[in-house]
Simulated assay, not measured.
Amino acid sequence: MNFYQSLGFLVFGSRLKRLGDTFLGDVSAIYKAHQIPFDASWFPVFYLLSREKEVSIKDIAETLNTSHSAASQMVSNLEEKGLIKTTASASDARRKVVTFTSKGSKLLQKIQPVWEALQQAMQQLAHESAASAQVLTALTELENNIQANSLFNRVEACLTKKESQQNEL
């Protein structure tokens, strides 16, 4: 058992970040090894656009559960690279929609096989042990529990209870 594992929940966030960094590093290395100029941080917007012909910035923000400003920054970054474009909606000129450029569509064709292989590899990894097979379910439950009652609120409740007990002494 390594140092991080021995500390349990005390470093849970750090372990998740390290694991996420490891996954993203490997995914970036895969794109680089296959000479695909794609940054893993672009995935959410690319994936949404791969499923829809056009998506509004508002829809991107809502789907990704992020601020409109953060979604707009992601879109601006991809626009600067010439991969997507923003135009007025045909149905409502006040609404801006995002679509792929031809360059973005060509890049999507190159990365989709990587996504399929990544999905297969992750399925294999998840089924290497009984506990690993439950990781997505457990992660979803944890996310839902935190959404219902934040870690901040939970820690504050523990501290308040501890202070109350100490004051009773």
Score class of each variant (00 low, 15 high):
V45W: 00
V45T: 06
F46P: 10
F46M: 15
Y47A: 14
L48E: 01
L48T: 03
L48Y: 03
S50F: 07
S50V: 10
R51A: 08
K53T: 06
E54H: 09
D59S: 14
D59I: 14
L64H: 00
L64C: 06
T66P: 02
T66N: 06
S67F: 07
S67Y: 02
H68T: 09
A70W: 02
A71Y: 01
S72Y: 08
Q73D: 01
Q73G: 05
M74T: 06
V75A: 09
V75T: 10
E79S: 15
E80I: 15
K81F: 05
G82D: 02
L83S: 00
K85Q: 07
K85L: 08
K85A: 05
T86P: 06
A88Q: 13
A88C: 11
S89Y: 03
S89R: 11
S89I: 11
A90R: 13
A90V: 13
D92M: 14
A93K: 14
R94C: 08
R95M: 08
V97E: 00
V97W: 00
T99Y: 00
T99D: 00
F100K: 12
F100N: 06
T101W: 04
K103C: 05
K103L: 11
K103S: 08
K103R: 09
K103F: 03
L107D: 00
L107E: 00
L108H: 04
L108S: 05
Q109A: 14
Q109E: 06
K110Q: 10
K110R: 14
I111E: 00
Q112W: 06
P113A: 13
V114R: 04
W115S: 05
E116N: 10
E116C: 10
L118R: 03
Q119I: 15
Q120E: 09
A121Q: 09
A121K: 15
M122D: 00
Q123M: 12
Q124S: 13
H127P: 04
H127E: 04
H127R: 12
S129Q: 02
S129H: 06
S129C: 12
A131N: 10
A131W: 05
A131M: 15
S132K: 12
S132C: 10
S132E: 01
V135K: 09
V135T: 05
L136T: 09
L136C: 08
T137A: 13
A138W: 11
L142V: 14
N144H: 11
N144I: 13
N144W: 06
N145M: 12
I146Q: 04
I146C: 09
I146W: 04
Q147D: 05
A148K: 12
A148Y: 04
N149L: 13
L151C: 08
F152R: 15
R154G: 01
V155Q: 05
E156L: 15
E156V: 15
E156D: 07
A157K: 14
A157L: 12
A157V: 11
L159V: 09
L159M: 13
